[in-house]
Simulated scan of single mutants.
Amino acid sequence: MKQILFLIGIILSISCSKATHTGTIPSHNSSSTSVIDLSPTLQSQILGGEQHFSVYLPPSYATEPNKRYPVLYLLHGMNQNYKSWINEGALQAVADEVIAEGAKEMIIICPDGFNSFYYNRPQMRYEDFFIQEFIPEIERRYRILSEKSHRNIAGLSMGGFGATYLAFQYHNLFGNAYSTSGGFIEPAMSLLKGIINTKLPTQKNFFPSYTLECGEEDSLVIESNRVFSQFLDEKQINYTKIFRQGTHNWLFWKESLPKILRSVR
């Protein structure tokens, strides 16, 4: 197993510069009052110790204290962290722009997923932490709409798999999911297919809205995305497929981000 995980790390390892920002970052756009907060933590009994995450609060959050918002859990890739979508993905600027253009105001939460693939493994019960501790605490602290239809999850590479896995495994929690350059590799792929197959007979109608996006020149994951797409087609699961020019890098993911944000319900 250690050898398999090492190979996974080699395949999906993504160069990511060290994040240097700390604390709260107000928007640089004078017409917006959105805020990025890199400082929050929560204590986890499951993982042990203090867990970090970052938050995007939309422009009206401070001025409309009774308003509640849809939430997007935005997952990072392997060898990245909870600051990557902000530092490398320009999350605040992109979110401000798409909201100004008419997208829903939303709260965006970027957890620290380590290299967990966001599901339970012997060395880390990340899935249990995320479902049992992280989501309840986040939705206690922030003014988030509680309905499934307003709970969204998305991610890149490893996080694309994680978003897909969590959305289908916990379809009672998530109304919408989006994967860009998803890391659908073994043994994670077989686990995901097994979960979907098990739920198909009785729960298919409750599956979330889902988008699968991948670059056609992405030699790391394009074939596995095609395989997963074919699987969804064979199971007659409704979803949106976007195969377009691009590879496994931040240029591609930054082009995906506005679509992810506009898909938030």
Results as ranks from 00 to 15, higher is better:
191 L>W: 03
145 L>F: 03
14 I>F: 13
195 I>V: 14
103 A>K: 09
230 Q>R: 08
201 P>L: 07
135 I>F: 00
146 S>R: 11
39 S>C: 06
212 L>K: 03
204 K>L: 12
15 S>A: 13
194 G>P: 10
26 P>C: 04
188 A>L: 13
15 S>N: 15
35 V>N: 09
14 I>Y: 10
8 I>C: 12
154 A>Q: 00
242 I>N: 04
175 G>M: 13
152 N>C: 15
225 N>P: 03
78 M>G: 00
241 K>R: 15
14 I>A: 09
138 I>W: 00
153 I>R: 02
247 T>I: 05
95 A>E: 15
49 G>D: 07
105 E>H: 11
136 P>S: 07
201 P>Y: 08
189 M>K: 12
93 A>G: 09
81 N>Q: 14
213 E>H: 05
172 N>G: 14
20 T>F: 04
60 S>C: 06
104 K>T: 10
242 I>P: 01
90 A>G: 09
94 V>P: 11
63 T>I: 08
105 E>G: 12
92 Q>G: 14
141 R>F: 03
181 S>L: 08
232 L>D: 06
65 P>V: 14
144 I>Y: 08
255 E>N: 10
258 P>I: 04
242 I>A: 05
151 R>P: 10
67 K>I: 11
192 L>R: 12
222 I>W: 00
86 I>D: 09
79 N>R: 15
147 E>W: 03
202 T>P: 02
118 Y>V: 00
110 C>Q: 09
73 Y>E: 11
40 P>T: 05
160 G>R: 15
110 C>M: 11
56 Y>G: 06
258 P>L: 08
261 L>D: 07
156 L>C: 14
109 I>C: 00
35 V>W: 06
94 V>Q: 15
151 R>Q: 14
47 L>D: 03
235 K>G: 01
206 F>V: 03
34 S>A: 13
113 G>R: 02
250 W>C: 03
235 K>C: 10
140 R>D: 11
181 S>T: 11
117 F>Q: 01
202 T>K: 13
9 G>R: 13
211 T>D: 02
187 P>E: 12
31 S>E: 13
22 T>R: 12
262 R>P: 00
83 K>Q: 15
251 L>T: 06
130 F>P: 01
216 E>Y: 01
168 F>C: 14
163 A>F: 00
71 V>C: 13
161 F>K: 15
262 R>T: 05
183 G>Q: 05
136 P>T: 04
42 L>W: 11
212 L>W: 01
234 E>L: 07
218 D>F: 01
19 A>S: 13
219 S>H: 01
126 Y>E: 01
215 G>Q: 04
37 D>F: 08
85 W>L: 05
13 S>V: 03
55 V>Y: 10
83 K>C: 15
111 P>C: 02
3 Q>C: 07
141 R>Y: 02
22 T>H: 11
235 K>H: 09
36 I>T: 10
51 Q>V: 12
220 L>G: 00
65 P>I: 07
32 S>W: 06
185 I>V: 15
103 A>H: 06
206 F>P: 01
147 E>D: 14
204 K>S: 07
10 I>H: 13
2 K>C: 04
231 F>E: 05
135 I>V: 12
183 G>W: 04
142 Y>G: 00
5 L>R: 00
185 I>G: 10
75 L>H: 02
96 D>C: 11
123 Q>P: 01
107 I>P: 12
41 T>H: 05
264 V>I: 07
107 I>G: 14
167 A>R: 13
193 K>A: 07
43 Q>T: 12
70 P>A: 11
